[in-house]
Amino acid sequence: MVNLGKSVEVAGSEGAETLDILADVSFAVNPGETVAIVGGSGSGKSTLLGLLAGLDLPSQGTVRIDGQDLFALDEDARAALRGRAMGFVFQSFQLLPGLTALENVMLPLELAGRGDAKASAERHLADVGLAGRSRHRPDQLSGGEQQRVALARAFAAEPRILLADEPTGNLDARTGAQVIDLMFELNRRQGASLVIVTHDPALAGRCGRQLRLDGGRVVE
């Protein structure tokens, strides 16, 4: 359940002015539902995603996950909630350059103290078709492969909500389509809710619902 507003102070010609990035954005995402957040550059898509994940703080409003007010929690509790419930896929993949594919997938599991980190990571790498590349580092993988490693990492934590920020933004159309197929397939298997920020109409079209943002408002 989402009900959010985000504004920031900026220095204007008449002193400090308030710039609304998001205003009265309200929506709900049901378990297993797939939602695309679309809109032009600067429409507030990424800000919204950051708030959904509790990475950023809203000016007003809140996000409730299973009835829990995300912003009533302190930062570490929000982090713990993220660790339990959320998975992430980023436009720029966000793999740690020094680690192998396997280690990148293992990292969140290790941080959560899971003893089966390695086995689980290997399984999920196999799921994305990269069992043979587990010892390769990001700079030895193509863009599509890197994003598949990121998918394996996101799903390995078995999240109930997967948040994806322009997952195909850095990929060519064909590779992007393959990654999207894989993402939807994995999501179908795990039954997570999927929230994707994108300005790719094809990707948005595959989601069950689209929220269009314009000037910080939902125009749906």
Binding site: A53, L55, D76, A79, R82, G83, F88, L111, A157
Partner: peptide, 14 residues
């Protein structure tokens, strides 16, 4: 980057 990412994955700052 790594620190922000691990925080994103839910690891407490401390």
């Amino acid at each position: 980057d790594g620190f922000a990412l691990m925080r994103c994955f839910g690891a407490p700052r401390r």
